[in-house]
Design a binder for these strands. Structure first.
Lengths: 197, 197, 197, 197
DNA sequence: AATGAATGAGAGTTCATTCAT
DNA sequence: CATGAATGAACTCTCATTCAT
């Protein structure tokens, strides 16, 4: 039983690993299920035994990345006791997480848009999870009286967008070589933007 | 002669108009050339007479939007004599231009990223044209001594990203109803971010 | 021993019962072995332990129906001592048997023909068993001098076809509601056709 | 224009001819569109340009056969002025038509059942067209007073079934070699069955 | 005996592109 | 210039069958 589950688990991981590789290399639409078959050294039937369709594989990866990012982000926020530094911690952590999962990040920020309009809602939901996190933080800052009231929703979207574009450019052009190099400038910009310092 | 050019011009315009409609409605990959044939009331052969392939139609539209946006942006910058207000003018102008060309904007900011890896270079080039514009402005501010030195490249990318995410969300979710409603908050954020006021 | 046989017997019966249900509901070709797995609450391996392949399951059902029908038919013929009434008894009995085994009948008369060319020989063999029965009866009638000589082979095929079409229509359209309602007319037709009365 | 129509017409005919050949040789379900491509010396895209799917090709053939059979049947009935002989004319004509279109007949009487349950209604409709023809004739006989009242619906279905089974057997076993050899016996049977002579 | 994960050949269908007219 | 019939490679997905456990 446990044996079977293990094997099944392993197989699913192999498929997902291969899918990340293929999707990020060729893009969602240009990736064939056959490519994943070859990369994962499994079989078509095997893949369709574990996933109902190609979309489901992609969605699984998207959710994984979102969960990873989200849990890391929350950890970072919780680990930093100083309210004024939580934002910096969040930013640095996101850059680190994105930077150390290049391919998953690519699926998350780039390829998802090419998977078809059915994914649009999903994308906005995922983006929303992070801007909401930022928004909560901004609201806390306001409530604590350390920054002046602001439209925290628009601000958090802009905050996420600034990071998003930086990371996207890193993915598509390789610039900057180390994503974290963007940290000092982004930190300054975002802190001052919301009115800290 | 002129007649022919006119007819040709008209035909090309009909195709491009149809393409905007179709691409923004279904996404680049889910749009068939046949869809454009129907929408433009032309023919398969007609389209392939004027464009070498589907990609070229999309690239033409992308360039159009980029040119439109760029010329409007430069106009806005030139029309505003006050250096400190040029940034606000640029921002407002971009929101207005995006807001009044919903579908082209969608192609520019959403569909292009998902259209496949062949478009990646083009996208970065187009995004780059705008962040470069911003970057030049930031450099001017620094040179004029009104803001402290900053990594203007990273900052301009972040600036563009903030706008980008706001507009993208507007396109995909319809929020905010009027894109320009985001202006005050974005203005405040971006001004303060680079160190103005 | 007996226990094992019983369990096996039960298992095989469960599979066959499920197969009748599935095959008659979806047709032979549109029925998946997985459908039978679910319906029978067994497993893929279990089915392939008891049957070499999908075809064999279907053939088993076909033979069952043929045997059932054949034994009933012989009983009916034997139970009726009056030679002139044997034909009527056979007809009534067939309508009753078909009418009380709707799904098996469907496999026998409808699905089998459409199951593919591999089944053609089998079908003709099964149909033949019944027309041969009729043929023997006709030959007896001729030998007894109660009807004039006739090509009993062609006649028996026609006889079976008349019943077949009536039953098929009942299966596919539900008309007549009670299959036996067709008896009086069919009886008259078939009796007179071969020259009785 | 006419040129194009001609070519198109020719192409469609080539596809349909190939489809008859393939469907009757391998059965509907065991025939691949690729088989038709090869047989017709066209291309997959070409086939799907003219037909929306595989089913449509089959339906077209079914309708063709039905129309052919129906028009021939009506001609035969009209050509025979003697009411008492119309039935014989119809029977002979059907045997001749079936006999001279072996493959189309096979699709009509055998393969259609294997195309899936979606075809069941169609099949009954087609069979119905012929039994209705017979039914009208029987009603005329009754009205003319030459035969005693009878349930003409059941009788016509039985009539068609007798022919159907005979023809089906001819198709599947090749017996009798000449389908028309069955005529004398069938004629006798069916005439006497309804009460003629 | 029984299970269900795994296989892979093959299915129908799509669609960017070509080209004879 | 314009047309639309034709092409064929490529796609996602299915399913009877196998086999390690």
């Amino acid at each position: 039983m446990t044996d079977r589950q293990d094997r099944s688990h392993t197989r699913i991981e192999k498929i997902l690993d291969a899918a990340v590789e293929i999707f990020s290399r060729k893009g969602y639409r240009d990736s064939g299920v056959d490519d994943i078959v070859v990369e994962s050294q499994t079989s078509k039937g095997g893949i369709y035994f574990h996933f109902p369709n190609k979309q489901a594989i992609f969605l699984t990866l998207l959710d994984r990345m979102a969960n990873l990012l989200h849990s890391r982000a929350e950890e970072a926020l919780n680990a930093e006791p100083d309210l004024l530094k939580k934002g910096d911690a969040l930013l640095l952590n996101m850059l680190k997480t994105f930077g150390s999962h290049r391919r998953l990040t690519q699926l998350f920020l780039v390829e998802a848009l090419g998977a078809g309009h059915e994914f649009n809602d999903k994308i906005m939901e995922l983006h929303g999870r992070f801007s909401t996190l930022v928004q909560s933080y901004l609201d806390e800052l306001v409530k604590a009286g350390v920054v002046a009231p602001i439209n925290s929703q628009v601000a958090s979207i802009a905050w996420f967008g600034a990071v998003n574009e930086t990371v996207t450019r890193w993915i598509l052009t390789g610039q900057p070589v180390n994503l974290e190099d963007a940290y000092p400038t982004l930190r300054l910009l975002l802190r001052r933007g919301v009115g800290l310092n």
